[in-house]
Amino acid sequence: MSIWLQILISLVQILFTASIILVTVAYLVYFERKISAWAQNRIGPNRVGPYGLLQPFADVLKLFFKEDIVPHAANKPIHTLAPILALVIALSTFAVIPIGPPIYIFDLKIPLVVADVNMGILYILALTSVGVYAITFSGWSSGSKYSLLGGIRSSAQMISYEISMGFSIAGVLIFSESLRPMEIVNSQAGFMWNAFVQPIGFITFVVAAFAETNRLPFDLPEAEPELVGGYHTEYSSMKFAAFFLAEYANMIIAAGLIVTLYLGGWQIPYIENLGLSYTLTTSLQILGFFVKMAAVLFFIIWVRWSLPRFRYDQLMNIGWKVMFPLSLLNLIWVAILVMLMN
């Protein structure tokens, strides 16, 4: 395969993945508002288009035409850099999440993942650890007390929960014996989903994912009553929209990761025994991935509108004294399991 063909395929994959994420983000916001409306016995957005389906586009246009305000005390280059960084990191994390088995077009094997690298999981951990900067810098560069406090709170929260996230992932890695997301999916054939094999790790990972994406009940960084918004208080117009996009893109990535690591990825148990044609099986598997992801996303939104926010000390206590030991316990459980199976 020539290098140019490879570059072309990669470009198409990148374009495809990025557009999927952006469209999903737009409708995720819509569904978040609709589900919250159902949860609170309201109707929700229903004015723009049929059932309010064009609401996301109206929102984006509105944000485009707003005035871009940079506070006087702000450090302008960093103030501009922070939202870009947040969005870039959020969009590039999805590169290693496989959405389906490899497909064949004209004898050309095309993996349904932008980068099928053998250290995919480490790549995700590296990007999430760099993601802290977007929030820290936006908080610092705004030149406002609320922003700085929100930024520092958020960074402390993300660093604390990265630990239990890392240890939960280690359990998955021991089981699949690979850092390649494709092989992690392959190792969960049938009903050997990691969510069933290591339920404690599943729970700690999901909780850590909530904390990493700053979603309720861990949305301390944007606690409106105390911080007037948090790290993005001083942002407006498209810069605010970039943070907004990044937050929802992070939700999609968290859902994709939960599905890939714990819910069997694109696999549908025992579908190969049904004797369906190759094309049909592959399409069903890709559909399966998106259905699972949608279910996880619904769960994330559902939790937001059901649970109140934790206090800051409660958040730290849960992170260090409950989630961290639990993820260690999970690691021991997986190690014993692997030893017994061999």
């Binding site: 250290m119 480490l122 790549y123 590296a126 650890s129 900067y133 820290t136 960074s155 660093i159």
Partner: peptide, 26 residues
């Protein structure tokens, strides 16, 4: 050297420099 490349980002860029920044900011 893929492992060192990723660890470089996780440890130096992701952990140590965050600590530095906290100290400088506070």
């Amino acid at each position: 050297a893929q492992f060192i490349a990723v660890v470089q980002v996780i440890v130096y860029a992701g952990a140590i420099m965050v600590l530095f920044l906290f100290v400088i900011m506070l």
